[in-house]
């Protein structure tokens, strides 16, 4: 055991001194999220909101698509980042009840990189771009809301009408949606 310490002292000579840490250290997840937040490319259609500025692991992303079928809507997503991040993906949920083939009525989001295709090299920006894409190109072949997907696949015009009426708080096939218009 003593021999290990002499090896450690050898190593230390060739490194910058690192004193002792008694105070709490910034956690690995915080470090990574801090870095990711600094690199977000939000553009004009996205905004973040941190209920507690000191807690960067929990925030809301507001998406306001400026093109596509969901143009004019305001969609809020909660991000809950686990302490195991980036080993595990952030947990993302849509706060509003919306009519979308890839988002169910509980707000669960079907986005491959939020689950089966998550890799630690991916960052928060990739997730945000993925969410934005879901509003530009709803995907009928990967449905979470089967009825919305069926509408999109069989009758695009009806799907469009359903999107518009659901966004203004109307109901589609007996299901009432939240009003999300600006």
């Amino acid at each position: 055991m003593l021999k290990i310490w002499s090896m450690k002292q050898e190593q230390q000579k060739s490194e910058a001194a690192a004193g002792q840490t008694k105070k709490k250290k910034v956690t690995a997840a915080q470090l990574r999220v801090q870095k990711d937040l600094g690199e977000l490319a939000l553009g004009s259609t996205m905004k973040t909101h941190f209920p507690n500025a000191d807690d960067i692991l929990n925030f809301t992303l507001t998406l306001t698509p400026d093109e596509g079928l969901y143009k004019g809507g305001v969609f809020n997503f909660t991000f809950a980042i686990p302490s195991t991040f980036p080993h595990e993906p952030p947990k993302v949920k849509c706060k509003e009840k919306i009519y979308h083939p890839n988002i169910d009525l509980e707000g669960n989001v079907c986005l491959n990189i939020l689950r089966e295709d998550w890799k630690p090299v991916l960052n928060l920006n990739a997730v945000i771009v993925g969410l934005q894409f879901l509003f530009l190109e709803p995907n009928a072949s990967d449905p979470l809301n089967k009825e919305a997907a069926a509408d999109l696949q069989t009758d695009r015009d009806r799907f469009k009408r359903n999107v518009r009426s659901s966004m203004s708080g109307g109901s589609v096939k007996g299901e009432t949606f939240d009003r999300v218009m600006k």
Binding site: K24, T27, Q30, Q34, G38, L40, K47
Partner: peptide, 24 residues
């Protein structure tokens, strides 16, 4: 140029995203 800085407990100052910049 655009530092983000924190301690374990506290967000000291973030240059980005904008909402955190305003909060800090």
């Amino acid at each position: 140029k655009k530092p983000n800085m924190r301690t374990e407990e506290k967000t000291l100052y973030y240059s980005a995203p904008e909402s955190l910049r305003m909060q800090t």
